[in-house]
Each structure stands twice: as C-alpha cells, then as structure tokens.
Design a protein around this nucleic acid. Structure first.
Lengths: 308, 308
DNA sequence: GCCAGGCATTTGAAAAACTGATGCAGATGG
DNA sequence: CCATCTGCATCAGTTTTTCAAATGCCTGGC
C-alpha cells in the first residue's frame, strides 16, 4: 500500500485548515507529523498538493483539490466500514445464515421467519434445509452460525441448545394391520416390512431404536425423501418411523396415513439449536434463538404435540 | 483511525485463502504479521471474523463474510485513489483551472477551449475571466494553475511565458477629429477627452504611457467595462486606449469604432501564460500551454494583427 | 502414538512515527 | 528599514509499531 489512512487524514485536515500548524492542533499531534504525512503523500502520488506561503500557511494546488476530494471520500468510507463493523457486533442488523434439518424445516421455518422478520425487518435471513452431515460441515466451516436440528452425532466442539423432545412414532397406512391401535410396540412392528428413510445419521438412529430392544428391522425399501416414504407407506408397502409430526398425515397421492405412538420408552430425538461452541454469538443470532424458542413453544402445543 | 489499510489487506488475503500461512506466502510477509492483523481487526471491530480449525486453517464466520465484502470494497477504493493520483500526475486527465484577463478572454478562450477539448476530451477545463489583481491572488492561493494575462505587476515568485506582444492603440469614434488618420500620436490624443477603463493595474499602465512621453491624459469618464467604454467612445464622448484588438470594432449600440495605431514606440503589453514559479506543472497544464501557443500563433495572424 | 500441519505467542530487531528544538524565509509592524 | 513574528521544513532522539524467526500448542493423519 502506498499510503495510510492516517496520512490521508492528516493531509485532509491540513487542506481544510490551510495550515499545518492548525491541523496539528486540531488533531492533537505535533506539527512535524502533519508535515511529514503531506510530504509522504506528495512523494508517493507524484503530485504537488500544496503551495507553501512563507509565514502564512499553505493552500491546495488544483491537483491537491482534486486529490483531497477523493481522499475525503475514502476516509468517509473507511469510517463507514468501522461503523458497519460496530453495528454488526452491537445491533440486530445485517444477515444471518441458518441451516435447518430437512424433516421439520418446512413446519418450523416459515412461521419462524414470519415472526422474526416482523420484529427485525432489517435483517436478511438465509435459510437452507439439509441433512445432518451437511449441517455439521456447514457449521464447522462457518457457512452458518446456527442450525435447527437434532443433537445427532454432533462433534464435541458444538454447543446444542435443546428446544423440544420428539419421541419416535410409527407411520402406518390406513390399511396396515396395526393402523387402528392407539399405540404399537417396536416388537410388533419389527416383523412387518419397513420403509427406511435412508439418510446419513438418520438411518443409524432408527436402527439404534430397534437395537436397544434387541430387535432388528425388516427393511423392504430404502428411500431418499420423506414424500417417497409416505407414498410407499400410504400404499401399503410397509410402515415407517418418524419424529416430526405434521398437521395432516397424508401422502402426496392422497393416501391417508396414521401416526401411532410407540409403546416402548425409546430415546426421543431432541430438536434444538446447534452451533460451534467457540463461535461467539452475534446480536442477530441471539435474537434469532430467542425467536426460535417462542416459535417452538407455540408449535409444541399444536403440530408438534401430534406425535405423542 | 481504528484500523489500517494494511491490516485489511492482510485480513482479506487470509479470508480468501482460508489460511494465515498461505496469505503470508502470497503477500511475502511472515505468518505472525497476518495473524496479528486479524487479531487486531477482531479486537477493534468486536467481531469474530474467523473460526479456527486446528491444524487445518480457518474459515470466515458469517460476520467475517459480511465484513470482508465491505473491506474488499474499501481496499478497491483505496487502490482507486492511488491510481487516480498516479494518473493525475502522469496523464492528461482530470481538470484544470485557468484564469483569463478580462479583455482578451472572449477572443482567445472560446477557440482555445474548442481546440484543447477536441484533443483532450477527458479533461474538464474551468475558466474564469477577471482582473489582474484577482488573477494574481487566485494564482497565489492555488485556485488556478495557469492564467492567460499580461505581465503586469507580476510578483517575483511568478513565472511568465510570453506569447504575443500587443502594442497599445487608440480607439476612436467614427466622428472623432482624429478618426481618419492612419496613425495618431499620444501627444495629439492627450488634449482630447479620454474614456478610462478604470481597472486596477490597467489604469496604471495607460497612465504610464502618457507619463513616458511627459504627457498627462485628460480623463472625461472612468468606466468599469469594455462595453461601456466602447459605447461612450462610439457616441463621441472621447477616445480610449486598448491593447486587445477585436475583429469588428463596433459598440453594442452599433456605433462604429476605429482602431488607430499610435505613432510613438510605446511599451507594448506582453500577453502570455503566468503561473507560480514553484508550482510544478501537471501534464494537463503542459498540454494546455502547448495548445495556447498554437492558438495564439493562429490568432496573431488574424484578429490580433489588427492593432498594428 | 508419533509426526506433520497450522495458528498463536514470544522475543528481539528493524522501521516508522512522533516530538521538541532549531532553522529558514518571507510577512508584519512600527 | 530593521526587529520581530509566523509557519513550514528539518534534525535528533525517543517511543511505538511492525516484522520475522523461533517456539508452543493443539489437532488430524498414518
């Protein structure tokens, strides 16, 4: 870099006051400091910035006048950057990047966004839904500061703020032999063909539920999407398991579905806010977490109550 | 100032490369230099700019991403300022402020501007016409870098580049008793009433002409403008003197005028380019002077030949 | 479990910035 | 016209900042 902001600052002061001495007084530095800053700028720009009047200060040359205008502009922008940074750290402004786990994002996030933006309209919220694996990676490399997800295989340097517990339940087609029960046991289900939502970390969780009961599931199909799973279940190809209740259980082709609680006391999935432990929260993130808490409290009394 | 351009530069490099070490290599500085620049920025902004991944570099936090965008912008603008200054000193760009003496500015400057701008359309030329006194003051305090004027009472720290010599001539109304002569002497004129163009420094010049011949003029009217002088002369109130011939000698009310050379060998007025001696010329100024020379050469064969 | 990679910290040296004093040249005032 | 004053540049010495090599420390890979 050819010059420093400080030199520009000194130069501008001298140019405005037409005096090195006055600029020095105004900025509370010594007169040689101003003088040398100007000399340095004249050196590196190759411009003669001032004409010196003996015993009566100095005045800008035409070149100096052109230069000082741009210099002031740059200083203003530097100041703007400082203020921008300050407000990023002190105020609820700017943007926030959030990741959401695929299953409950469509239920949780739209209402959440609505609530958050009505309170903080100046904030730009970027949301992405993804698998747990991508969430962990995105949080790790700083792509997101927060993630709404399950505490599923979170690395030790993550912090998790739990919001709600979602016990697993069975998803059954209306024609399934077990569909009319008020609750079913994993033991009963294990014999039937199961539709597995074949997502990294999710599949291990479901498998672990059976394992904890000494059982083994009977995978009929492995699918990559919730909708596909519901379609197969709704059409009688098997049952499935889930943690995220939705308002109206129905496949996309209209086949009715049932959500039936499981008899065993199984490890529930804990949904909450995950983030890197050593990433200090911004004001925006704090505000967002507060809003998530409100939104979740509300949902836990309506949609999310459906699984229990 | 809270931060330096250098710190921003180091930070941006680290952010782009996701590595302190790589940034240090790229910028040919040591790794601690980068590291401390980042630490300082995090300190003064209050933002956490990076998440550190042990043994595998670092990545920008969302705050860091917002900050780096603006930081890059500022650096680009700082670069722009450096280039702007460089081109101001090296190229014929930017603007130039020129003063012109009142009498011949309307004759010289329009054509001059046309010629100059056709060659250097990127330059903004600011022209002002004024008295010698204001010209000297404007040059002294750097308002103009050049002035087209007479070498009339120029201070010793001025430099004057003469372009053309303009001997004084008499301006007479068509009905004036001396109007039909091919030349008149000051001695003849001195008896008649004279219309004085009462400008600072100009009046002293005209008076000195008489003084050099042991004469004294007979002031009938003192006026503040060329046009007023011509009007009075054209309507028979007296004669006047001038140095700047114009193409068609006529007052604004249509009264015809005559320009009659003076018999005596009087000190001519030297017209040229004046400037502060210790103000280094910019490229624009150099180019402008060259154009003035061309333009004057051309005019000296047409309009400016009229006085002799 | 050892090695390598990579950032932070330490330490000492070099460079830069700063200051008070001085010099110098023109302006000011009687 | 001379003495004084003003205000920028320069100098010398000190403080501050910058820089880099070495070191430490923690993690990931083999």
């Amino acid at each position: 870099m050819r010059f420093t902001l400080k030199q520009l600052h000194y130069f501008v002061a001298a140019g405005d006051l037409n005096s090195v001495t006055k600029a020095a007084e105004a900025l509370h530095v010594s007169q040689p400091s101003i003088s040398s800053a100007i000399l340095h700028l004249e050196e590196v720009t190759g411009l003669q910035l001032f004409v010196r009047h003996h015993a009566q200060g100095l005045s800008l040359t035409p070149s100096g006048q052109q230069f000082i205008r741009k210099a002031k502009q740059l200083l203003t922008e530097a100041d703007g950057l400082a203020h921008y940074a300050k407000s990023l750290s002190d105020d609820v402004v700017g943007s926030i990047n959030v990741a959401g786990f695929l299953t409950f994002s469509p239920i949780l996030i739209p209402g959440l966004l609505k609530r958050f933006l009505s309170e903080y309209p100046a904030v730009k919220v970027n949301c992405e839904e993804m698998h747990q694996k991508d969430i962990i990676q995105g949080l790790t490399n700083g792509k997101f500061e927060l993630a709404l997800t399950y505490d599923l295989e979170l690395p030790s340097d993550f912090e998790f703020h739990p919001l709600i517990e979602l016990p697993p339940f069975a998803i059954l087609g209306a024609d399934h032999p077990l569909a009319d029960r008020s609750e079913v046991s994993l033991k009963d289900l294990a014999e039937h063909p199961m539709i597995l939502l074949d997502w990294p970390m999710s599949r291990e969780y479901f498998f672990s539920l059976f394992l904890s009961q000494g059982l083994e599931p009977n995978y009929a199909y492995k699918v990559q999407s919730i909708e596909m799973m519901r379609g197969l279940v709704g059409n009688g190809f098997g049952y499935s398991l889930g943690n995220t209740p939705i308002a109206k259980m129905q496949a996309q082709d209209g086949s009715p579905l049932r959500q039936v609680p499981l008899k065993e006391n199984l490890r529930p999935m804990r949904m909450g806010v995950a983030r890197l432990a050593d990433l200090r929260l911004t004001r925006v993130a704090e505000a967002f977490i507060a809003t998530v808490e409100e939104q979740t409290r509300e949902l836990s009394e309506s949609v999310f109550a459906g699984g229990r």
